[in-house]
Each structure stands twice: as C-alpha cells, then as structure tokens.
Simulated scan of single mutants.
Amino acid sequence: MSTTHTEPRPPVLHLDQVSRVHGHGAAEVHALRGVELVVHPGELVAVMGPSGSGKSTLLTLAGGLDSPTSGRVLVEGAVLGELSRKQQAQVRRRSVGYVFQDYNLIPALTAAENISLPRELDGVSGRTARREALAALEELGIPELADRFPDDMSGGQQQRVAIARALIGDRRLVLADEPTGALDSTTGEAVLAVLRARCDAGAAAMMVTHEARHAAWADRVVFLRDGRLVDQSVSRDAASLLVAAATNSVKGPGE
C-alpha cells in the first residue's frame, strides 16, 4: 500500500536573521536584532510587544518599504534586496497588502478609487478594478462609502477603506499595523473575522496589535522586546495564555 506524503507549502514571508540599525555612532538605534520569522500560507501571525520594541519596523521591512541593515527578507521566495526598485514595487502591488496606522488614503480620490488604484497601476482595467473595489467595500460592510472622499469619512471609516485596499485582488501577504485601532469593539471584531477568513482561504497575514483579545484570532503570537523576538505561541489555543505571560514579563517594577 502506497503512502502519500504532502509536501509542506513554501512560506509566503521569511525574515532571515533580519536586523535594522538607524543612525550612527552615539545616535545608533538597533530597531531589530537578528529576527528569524517564517509565515506560511493560511497563517495569521500577531505581533506584540512594548512601545519601541520594533513591531512597526518589522512590518515595514516585511512589506519592502524599508531595507534591513543585515539579513534577508523573502516574499514568496523572492529576496527583496536582490530586486530592482521597479520589481520591488511590483511585488508590493501584486503580492502585499499593507494597512498603515495613518491609513495613507489619497484625499483627492474616493474610497473606491483609493482601493482600485493599485490594481489599475498593475494593468487591470478601470471597470474590473472598480468592481473588485466595490466587492472589497461590501466585504468590510461599508458599500455606501464607495463614492465618498476621505475628508468626508470618520477615522474608523477611513481605516476600513484602508483595510479594503489591502485586501483587493489576490494579495498573498497582508500586513496590518494596529488594523482595529480606530474601530469600536464590534466593528473591530468584524474586521478581524474578514482577515481571518482571508487566511483560511490561503493568504498569509501579520498584524501588530496591543490587544490580547485581538491576538486570540491568530494562529501564532510572536513577542518582540528591544528588537529581538523573545517568545512565540505555537497554536491559536495557546495564544491567550502566552499573551498573559509575556505581558507580565515585559512590565517593569511598579507597572
């Protein structure tokens, strides 16, 4: 009787001993120190840690928005540092969806236009890109915002539009920096459910969060402190216990 072996799927994201140093001499700051992290298809990874631990730096490097001082960042097997700027931009448009803390919406474009712009830049027809944008808005529960400009939206509405932009098309990697920060608890849970569904459908995602209840949606929770990856859970069931343990470990005396 023959036995079928399933080959492990290659990672969507691999941070290979990544370090990032800002400044020089006395002003030198080690934002990340030798971080080794792999994120596979279907996996949602939550990143936690105290302020200044390197969480946002980790995301900007993973998305190719900054370059490591040492180490390598691979997205779907491509080493970002070995690509031209044009090739890196193509990877970001086609494979990576990024949710910024400050949303980064273009004020002169409507919600639907902001969402569809990356697709149009990649050669998708305007009609198809708008149809995809409307579907993304529907998925986030805000179809009525399609023709509204950012200045006519609340902060929470802008955040959901930014999330829709990150999810449009076949994004294999979604990076989210505090994606529920401007949302009420009910809307935040709905957004996390959408992100979870995308991962369950085969995408990979990494989100920075300071909320243990949000980290509980993840398959793994990784903890950064002083630029180092100091701990991580191994399953979604262990997440809440690990969150509590790590939170206690990073508190200083009297906190």
Rank of each mutant, 00 (worst) to 15 (best):
A166K: 02
D102I: 06
V124C: 12
Q87P: 10
V208S: 05
A26W: 03
H40Q: 09
R127T: 14
R225L: 15
L58R: 01
S2C: 00
A197W: 07
D226Y: 11
M48R: 03
A89Y: 03
T6A: 12
A129F: 07
S67F: 03
D147I: 10
S125A: 13
M206E: 07
D200W: 07
K86H: 15
R165C: 10
E189A: 15
Q87Y: 06
R9I: 00
R131H: 12
P179T: 09
V45A: 11
R171V: 05
L173Q: 04
D231Q: 09
V222K: 00
D226K: 06
R228D: 02
T209F: 09
D226I: 09
R213H: 15
A62E: 02
R236S: 14
D147V: 05
E178Q: 12
V194A: 07
L140R: 08
E138V: 08
R213F: 10
D170P: 00
D170W: 05
L80E: 00
R148A: 14
G141K: 01
G123T: 03
T3D: 14
V174P: 07
A108Y: 10
R9G: 06
R172N: 00
E7V: 13
L37F: 07
V73N: 01
E255W: 12
V79L: 02
R160I: 11
G254L: 11
T247Q: 14
R220V: 13
R94T: 11
D102L: 12
V12A: 05
V99E: 04
G63E: 09
G54S: 10
S51P: 06
T6F: 01
G34L: 06
A135P: 03
S95H: 08
L137R: 00
S53W: 04
R130K: 06
V12K: 01
G34R: 09
T6H: 05
G126L: 05
E7W: 00
P179C: 11
V194C: 12
M207V: 14
V21D: 10
P118N: 10
Y98R: 01
P68R: 02
I115D: 04
R9A: 15
L80H: 07
V47G: 03
G188E: 08
V35G: 00
R196G: 01
L140I: 12
L192Q: 06
I106M: 15
S56E: 11
S154H: 10
A62D: 07
A216N: 05
A216L: 08
L229P: 01
S235E: 00
N104F: 14
R225T: 10
A162C: 14
P253K: 04
R228K: 10
E28H: 05
S185A: 15
L109G: 05
L44N: 02
L109N: 03
V191S: 06
I163H: 05
S116M: 15
A197F: 06
A204P: 09
L192P: 03
R85M: 13
V75W: 00
R131L: 09
G169T: 01
I163M: 14
R131N: 08
F100Y: 13
E211K: 12
I163K: 06
V91Y: 02
V38W: 06
L13D: 04
H30K: 04
L117F: 15
I115P: 08
L192D: 03
G54C: 11
L121Y: 13
A133Q: 02
W217E: 02
P143W: 02
S51C: 08
C199H: 08
V161N: 09
V75I: 02
T110R: 07
P10I: 05
K55N: 14
D231V: 01
T187L: 13
P50F: 00
A31C: 03
G202V: 13
